[in-house]
């Protein structure tokens, strides 16, 4: 793949949500979701969130990701502000193909990786065509 310059993607603020108790904005994390034969993988950018401040909630088929940001630089005078700092919130509907008991989560350098294994019956099967 040819090298390319990174494009600026502005942070999107969550519009509809019950009001939070912290008086800071709440952003929608940018995510990549990809599927392999065994699992779906969800990768979310949540810079500023420490691993212990990620909250993943699974209820019925609804997956909720919440990240609480650690505020830095309080007491400093702001000179330039090109991005907002806030919490993260996003919900996804999982299909029936996910084995909810085997979901794994890892958080590193502000990136959350969720591995959502598929239930056995959802994995692709080879169907051999019989001759004769």
């Amino acid at each position: 793949m040819a090298e390319k310059d990174i494009e600026l993607r502005e942070k999107q603020e969550v519009q509809t949500q019950a009001e939070s108790t912290r008086n800071i904005p709440v952003f929608i994390p940018a995510v990549d979701i990809y599927e392999s034969e065994e699992a779906l993988t969800l990768v979310a950018d949540m810079p500023g969130v420490a691993p212990e401040n990620v909250d993943i909630d699974l209820r019925d088929d609804q997956l909720t990701i919440r990240g609480t940001v650690s505020l830095e630089g309080e007491g400093e005078t702001v000179l330039l502000r090109e991005y907002g700092v806030g919490d993260y919130y996003r919900q996804f509907n999982l299909g029936r193909i996910i084995d909810q008991s085997k979901i794994e989560a890892a958080m590193k350098d502000g990136v959350l990786t969720l591995t959502l294994p598929k239930v056995d019956k959802a994995k692709p099967k080879k169907i051999t065509v019989k001759t004769g």
């Binding site: 600026l8 950018d45 949540m46 810079p47 500023g48 830095e72 630089g73 007491g75 400093e76 005078t77 702001v78 000179l79 330039l80 502000r81 090109e82 991005y83 700092v85 590193k108 350098d109 502000g110 990136v111």
Partner: peptide, 20 residues
């Protein structure tokens, strides 16, 4: 990356979000 710049008495602080 977008930058946030702030200062106090002794230092300037430049921050950028570079997840991953």
């Amino acid at each position: 990356p977008p930058l946030n710049v702030s200062e106090d008495k002794d230092n300037l602080y430049v921050r950028a979000e570079l997840p991953g």
